[in-house]
């Protein structure tokens, strides 16, 4: 266990009462932050402080606090989930910050993710994209034995790499164009790598891309900021898979 250093920080936090409010950055100071705290625990401390002062606490989404539910969604100094690669902001610890540092905390910024309050945004656009085709059409019951259809280990691993997506939306938040392509591509690739995903492969790609386009996300311009901030380090290779599947399907190819 490393030493028990304490930090004093200046936070610039986006405050916005509701969707209609234009919002603004507010500045707060927190003192004596342990380096072993998580970033969200640091915000808990701030919120205790605010509550004691009679000021409404800062609203932010969070749930599992172990990097898997995809709920937490803070842009820390311009980087979704903050400076540590492959880490959600709930698992980002304060040892990555310096005493006296100023930290700007903003919500995900995208037209398709309207702000609900403070740092909380509405990501239901992602759900609608999955509803358009991000599944295998199989009803409960009547499935063949799990071992009836062997899946090469390599394919299962590649599918898992893509399936690791937690749907947090950092890819959109980081993209200079607020594009959702990494999210959509992750699901398309996951199912495209498995035999179970083959029958609907082409239709799925077309349907999901159409749904994505409807939501008002931007378009990918291959800058790969999404990959850099993805807490599950999903590769932009998945986007290539999506491009290929969509083009083939759109051109009516087999």
């Amino acid at each position: 266990m490393s030493e028990n250093k304490r930090l004093n920080l200046t936070l610039h936090i986006w405050r916005q009462k509701n969707a209609a409010d234009p919002g603004r950055l507010a500045t707060y100071r927190v003192q004596g932050v342990s380096v072993h705290m998580s970033f969200l625990e640091m915000l808990d401390v701030l919120n205790e402080q605010l509550t004691a002062q009679g000021e409404e606490p800062v609203a932010f989404d969070h749930d599992c606090r172990e990097g898997i539910c995809g709920m937490c969604s803070l842009t820390v100094n311009g980087i979704p989930h903050g400076p540590q690669r492959g880490t959600t902001v709930c698992q980002l610890h304060m040892r990555h910050f310096a005493d006296g540092q100023e930290i700007t905390i903003e919500p995900w910024r995208a037209k398709a993710f309207p702000v609900v309050r403070d740092l909380v945004v509405d990501r239901s656009a992602f759900d609608r994209i999955i509803q358009a085709g991000g599944f295998v059409s199989v009803n409960t019951g009547g499935s063949p034995d799990g071992n009836a259809l062997p899946v090469p280990k390599k394919d299962a691993e590649a599918a898992m790499d893509a399936a690791a997506c937690i749907g947090c939306g950092a890819c959109v938040a980081a993209c200079k164009n607020a594009s959702a392509m990494l999210f959509v591509a992750a699901k398309i690739s996951h199912l495209a790598k498995l035999p179970q995903g083959q029958p609907e492969r082409r239709e799925r790609a077309l349907a999901m891309v159409a749904a994505m386009d409807q939501e008002g996300f931007g378009f990918c311009s291959n800058q790969y900021e999404c990959e850099a901030v993805c807490p599950k380090e999903i590769s932009v290779r998945t986007i290539a898979v999506m491009n290929r599947d969509t083009l083939r399907a759109g051109l009516g190819g087999a």
Binding site: R109, A110, K111, A178, S179, F219, S221
Partner: peptide, 12 residues
């Protein structure tokens, strides 16, 4: 379209 996809820019 890309520009319209982020109507409020990041402060940082």
């Amino acid at each position: 379209r890309n520009r319209a996809a982020r109507p409020v820019p990041y402060a940082f």
